[in-house]
Design a protein around this nucleic acid. Sequence first.
RNA 1: GGUCCCGUGGUGUAGUGGUCUAACACGCCUCCCUGUCAAGGAGGAGAUCGUCAGUUCAAAUCUGAUCGGGAUCGCCA
Length: 599
Amino acid sequence: MYKDTNCGEPREDTVGSVITVAGWVNRRRDHGNLIFIDLRDRTGLLQVVFNPEHGENAHDLAQSLRSEWVVQVTGKIVARLPGAENPDLPTGGVELSVTDLVVLNQSLTPPFEISDDVEVEANTRLKYRFIDLRRPRMQEILKLRHRVTHIMWDYLTKQGFTQVETPILIKSTPEGARDYVVPSRVHPGDFYALPQSPQQLKQLLMVSGVERYFQIARCFRDEDLRADRQPEHTQLDFEMSFVHQDDVMAIVEDLYTRIVKETTPDAVINGPFVRLTYAESMDRFGTDKPDIRFGMELTTITATAATSDARVFQAVASSGGAIRGFVAPDCGGYGRKQTDNLTEFAKSSGAQGLVFIALDESAPSIEGLEDDHIKSPLKKFLSLDVIKKMAMEMGAEPGDLMLIVAGTSKLVNTVLSNLRNEMAKRLEMVDPKNLAFSWVYDFPLFEWDEDLKKYEPAHHVFSAPKAEHMEYLDSDPGKVIGTLWDLVCNGSEMGSGSIRIHDKDLQTRLFNIIGYSKDQISDRFGQLLTAFTYGAPPHGGMGLGLDRFVAILAGEEAIREVIAFPKTQSAFDPLFDAPSQIEDEQLEDLHIRVVMPKK
RNA sequence: GGUCCCGUGGUGUAGUGGUCUAACACGCCUCCCUGUCAAGGAGGAGAUCGUCAGUUCAAAUCUGAUCGGGAUCGCCA
């Protein structure tokens, strides 16, 4: 070993001991005859002092030291001079008085400072990710992520789960996202696909009798990126036999609560997790991933609004649309600029417009509202009675701002849920330390796809319909509720699970409903259907996004921050310059010809 | 595919038609300095303002295109 002690370890009780440490020069303070170096390794910082009286050669050499050089130093741990202690460092009571210095490696001046409080452009950070990861914050996140997966391994092992690896080179079964694809050399013209998730594999493992499987599994999707989406992400994937919905939820709830408590003691986690049906969640929050840390729940006022003279409202109501809104408390004093800004925001989410009704705080009550208490672009179309009625339905008080959107119910929900989150952010209604988990369950099995004019699986095709809804499978598939749920935290989807179908005939019926042909079914799902004919146990499980979970624990918005080597929004890796062209010989081996797109 | 924001020494920012021969902080280099810890002091180097085209007597600044980054809708678990 190049060191017998870590930089973060020495304390007052080891004063007098002679130690050797090794690490990076974090900072240098050169006083001429006295040189201080903060030496950094994974455990922390240690001040080392070069004093010619204790090591002349070392002192001479130390004059050449620069940031990020890698050095090994030997010396004696001494107590700091009274008054020279540094209370900000755990090792701040002592320092290393150096007798010997070995330069293990020099370093160029790093492209940016290794410090948490320097914000560097994303591209530069990724190009020099190996340096970026030296920052204490990034080291902390890497360790946090490790601890999370460690607890998962430990906990699930104790619960009788077996970790099984599944292939990365598998078959393209296009459903949902676009596949990443790998050409085969041995089979000209054929391709593997990288798994979007190990869904079929884990179900096969249930048929194999594993009963309790888990994997920290890499999943790939060739879709456009977002702050919370990378081309490859990691999920805690698990599956259990002989379980019902509550059994699966109980495992996750216990596991996630433990992880939060053990890794992020400052966080305030709710328990037990809130349970909402999909229908209730859509009704109250307009989304299936509600942030339940604040109120401002949505109200439907279609009937009342339709009685007004506002043509927008009448038109929407008569065409079967929805008029909904929520109350932003104490925002009745918003000026033109602020309301314009909100309208702009609503439009960016797809709204035609945003109707607001500001209620002046000087109004004695809702009943006592007078005409000049009200500000609204639709004021002349809304009678005082209608406004009062809408305010009462929505629970508005004098001084509040009512925000209303009209349109198809899907659009209204999208706009209002985005707007609700935005208002919470602007009004600083959320404490970032607060982790509010909820289970959203009873999802519909299918969604009508307006473009394709057919039903699409709301989650995936393997979820079991509720027994009591079987009768609607053929008559009205949109009505069928599945044994299907999501885990949601702070408005972000953390994972989804279901009780799966384990019956060949039922699974085939589902495939038929979403319009798969016989050939497509046997091509993509033949192996699973065959397996179901050999004694498949009832089973269910979940896939839980690890990156999002760690990001929430770390208080980061983008999962990029919790992935060691992430890609940019255009799925590019500036560190390796990937993707890149390959040699002609490689293409030839793979029987591939490249056709560039026309400009 | 759409919309929006950003791109100025190594890093982060200021400058939004002429006074820019581009400013500031940090970093970097040289010298001085034995108690600093975001050390201090003195001096110095370093940028054709992402790229290309255009408007103009004059462009970092205006326009268009393009490239790159980010946010978001579509898309996507």
